[in-house]
Simulated scan of single mutants.
Amino acid sequence: MLTNNPPLLVFSGQSNCTLAEEICTELGIPLGKSQTEKFSNDNLVVRFSESLREADVFIVQSFTTPVSDSIMELLLMIDAAKSASAARVTAVVPYYSYARSDKKDEPRISIAGRLVADLLQASGADRFLTMTLHSPQVHGFFKIPVDHLSATVVISNHIKSVVPNAHEGVVLAPDAGDIKRASAIARRLDAGLAFIDKRRTSDTTVNARALIGDVRGKNVFIVDDEIATAGSLVEAVNLAKEMGAADVYVAVTHGVYTGPAVERIRDLDVVEVCSTNTVLVPKGKIEGSNGKLRTLSVAPLFAQAIRNIHTGASVSTLFE
């Protein structure tokens, strides 16, 4: 049990209560009580059922479907906490979906990643805790302290547990932009490294052009930040198999699994597809994948980060 001064309180929005409850179990504290209601005009109202005065408040909310409701609920919870005299409010967003919108790559569009960051700060957030941003530069959109966690340790340990000779395999980055992440896991596994040269032709279509590296006869571990429609994943797996890969394992931080993703994974020649619980994967999707989908918990990592933030300890030690 933690000894808190000021008291540590953890609350959850509706997007991922399961993860919030696991975090609280790790911390040895109960999940804070709050309610969210939607009026007939589609407006949301949130209220806390306990005192927040001078408390160190952490609000857990992933930006998952319905994303706009998730964001609005978090903004209202932050504002309500500040109005209730919380000493500090930290927005804990395990999956920050708008990190994909990090630049103006087309005319007349919004850089939504920055806009949502501005909204969180305007609502009163004093600190931001997240995991594996699609674009690390989104960190710079915030003028408040940001703690950017990585699932590298969790993913690496899982691969070692299911593949005893993982050091003889190859970590494969689905595109050149993922080489840094793949390289970090390859170092932990003492495995080889390869990447795919690809071209995105639309928001949902990706063409893999070449695989750089040697995967013939080796177990391949494809790692990425997230899976949405699984279009990139299909291209990566098929190309790895064409190049002579043995068993293929997939591990990502955020398993969003939208559109045809589950069906594609079900029919894919892979041993398993793992994602962490930053996004709540419905039981129906897991069953629909013929048992290929697996979930890894990052609750201990978030709990330790929250504990360190609360006590003033270093968060960077969690990467060691």
Rank of each mutant, 00 (worst) to 15 (best):
I212C: 12
A236N: 03
G192Q: 06
H167N: 15
L239S: 01
R187I: 00
P174M: 01
I227N: 06
A184H: 07
G217M: 11
I185Q: 02
D178Q: 12
K241E: 00
G231V: 07
H254V: 04
V252W: 04
A182R: 01
T204M: 09
A182S: 14
A191I: 09
L239F: 06
V237T: 09
D247I: 00
I227M: 06
E242I: 04
S183Q: 14
S183M: 12
T201S: 13
H167G: 08
H167D: 14
I185E: 09
R188H: 09
L193Y: 12
V220N: 00
A186I: 09
S161F: 11
G192K: 02
R181H: 07
V234P: 10
D175A: 03
K198L: 08
T253H: 01
G169H: 05
V215H: 07
I212H: 12
A240T: 02
A228S: 15
D224G: 06
A173N: 05
A230N: 05
A208M: 04
E235D: 11
K241N: 02
V215G: 10
L189E: 08
D178V: 04
D203T: 08
F195C: 05
L193G: 04
G177F: 10
N207C: 10
S183P: 00
L189Q: 04
V170F: 06
R187S: 15
E168D: 14
A230M: 09
T229L: 02
K198P: 10
